[in-house]
Amino acid sequence: MEKWANNKAWFLVLPVVIIVAFSAIIPLMTVINYSVQDIWGPGQSVFVGTEWFEEMLGDKRLHDALWRQFLFSGLVLLIEMPLGVLIALAMPKRGWGVSACLVTIAIPLLIPWNVIGTIWIIFTRPDIGLFGAGINNLLGIAFDHTARPLDAWITLMLMEIWHWTPLVILLAYAGLRAIPEAFYQAAKIDGASAWAKFQYIQLPKMRGVLTIALLLRFMDSFLIYAEPFVLTGGGPGNSTTFLSIYLVKIALGQFDLGPGAAFSLIYFVIVLLFSFMFYQALQRVGKGEKG
């Protein structure tokens, strides 16, 4: 499967390069430009070098947001990956149930992100929400995601799991369906238990799709913005202020262009670093699977 060497292929990718460069490079240049200047009005600015970077790197609130972000992404992966695989294993293999399950499971993925927040506000409010009212009145436990940090986190995690586990399920299901029937037949003949079947056939064969799932879930949970913005607005206090929320607060809320830009670049580098690690892993897995 050697590819044809031909540099004329650049003409085919040119439109993509132009359109993405327009949307990516020009704004990025702007950000870099801001990050090294102090701007206090139109046309009034002064070069400040790495001052903003130093300020942001030393910013305690940024540190807090970063650790919060890692905790959040870590919890998300820890819960969603096994849950997604488990549900995918329970799904029917053929018949009308397959379409019904797929469509139902995919619904949360197609709801605008702020509407997700809205759904969960309505669902968890202590006065009108089924969940909120249920916990407060039936179980007698005080629960209010707008007042108590722990409750805010629980609500946020529930929402995130509700919203994104379907992606893991769909990926895992696609991986499971791609396993040829002969593997299951061989396992039957060899007298393998259900657990052995999972451990030695299903899990290894799902490695490729699960890596993609892990990658996408890490990225998107690390970049999360709209849902917590709508649900908690970063509060109570700063308990759910994640990186994106903090960044938008600085850049668009307080219009602190310099620190905001420096923050953006630091954020970008962190994500890029992880992207690269995951991309390398993905490439290796891709080769292993195909070979």
Partner: peptide, 23 residues
């Protein structure tokens, strides 16, 4: 080129919000 394209899928949207507004 492929990797560069993918980084854009992975870039935090919040970074681009302000420059986009100005652009």
């Amino acid at each position: 080129l492929f990797f560069w394209l993918l980084t854009n899928r992975m870039a935090p949207a919040a970074i681009f919000a302000l420059p986009f507004f100005q652009l």
